[in-house]
Amino acid sequence: MRYLCWRMVHGLLVLVGVSVLSFVFAALAPGDFLSEMKLDPRISPATVAALRDRYGLDLPLPLKYAQWLRSVRRGELGFSFAYNSPVATLLWPRARNTLLLTVTATTLAWLIAVPLGAWSASHPGRWGDRLCAGVTTALLVVPELVLGLGLLLVAVRTGYFPVGGMMSARFADLGPWGKLKDLALHLFLPASALILLNLPILVRHVRASLIEVLAAPFIQAARARGVPHRRLLFRDALRAAANPLISLVGLSIAALLSGSLVVEALMSWPGIGPLLLGAIAARDLHVLVGTVLCSTLFLLVGNLLADALLYLADPRLRVDQA
C-alpha cells in the first residue's frame, strides 16, 4: 500500500515535470496564436494588444506557467484560442475517444495473441508455427502509416466500413442498439490497425515465455502424470508465464499511444492525436500542453495498473512487501 502511494506521488511529480518541460518547449517556439492576427489589416493593432494583454501572452515564462497552474486548479487546464473554450471541455471527450480506441484494441489484441501464441508454443517448428512467425515478421516490418493507408484503401474499395469519423451523421436518431452498431462499425478500421500493429509483438512474447515455461520440470512432471495438454497449457503454463506478459502490458502502452496518434490522425478518429497535430499547426499552447499531459497520464495510469495486476498475480511480490 505504501508502495502504491509512493508510486502516485512519483507519478504526480512526473506530470509536473512534463508540464514544465512542454511549457518550456512551447515557449521556445517563435510566434503564438495571435501573431498571425497582427498581419491581418482588418484587425487594429489596439485590439491585438488588448487581446495579448487579456490572455497574458507577453508575460515572462514563470508567470505564464503560474497563470496556467491557476487555471488547472479551476479545472480548466488553460484556454484554447483556436476553439475559444477552456481546454478541459475540449480534452475530455477526446481523451475518452482515445481511451475507447486503445482499450478496445489492446483487449482484442491480447484475446487473439494469447491463444495464437499458446498454440504456436505448443507446436514449435511445425508448419503452423512457422507460418505464424512469418506473418508476425511481415506485420512487424509494415509501418503504421502504410498499414493505416492500406486499411483505408480496403475500406474505400469494399465500402463495408465507414471511412473516418466516429459516428454517422444520423447517430442521434438511432436507437441504443443502432448506436452501438454504428460505433462498432466506425471503430472497426482504427481498432484493427492498432491490433495488427500490436499483435506481432504480443504473439512473440506469449510464445517465447510459454516455450520457456513448457520446458520447466514441473510441467514435465504434470505431463508425465497425465494432465491433459490443453489444461496444462492454459491453466498451469499460462499462469506461470503470466509475469513477464503482465510487465509487457505496461511496457507496450507507450508504443500503443504513439501508434494510436498516427492511426487517429489517418482515420480522423476524434482522439487526442489529431487535437495535438491541430494545436501545433495553430500554435495553441495550452491545448498542446494539455494533450501531452493527457498522454503522459494515460501512460502513468497504465503502468500503475500493470503493476497492480502484477502484484495481484504474483504472490511472491506480496510476501516481499509484507
Binding site: V14, S22, A254
Partner: peptide, 21 residues
C-alpha cells in the same frame, strides 16, 4: 525517467512545436 514517461511520438511532436511551421 521523465523522457521515458512520455509517449515518444507525443514528445517528439511537442519538441517539434518549438520551431516555426
Amino acid at each position: 525517467e521523465l523522457f521515458l514517461a512520455l509517449p515518444w511520438l507525443y514528445l517528439l511532436l511537442a519538441v517539434r512545436a518549438t520551431l516555426p511551421l
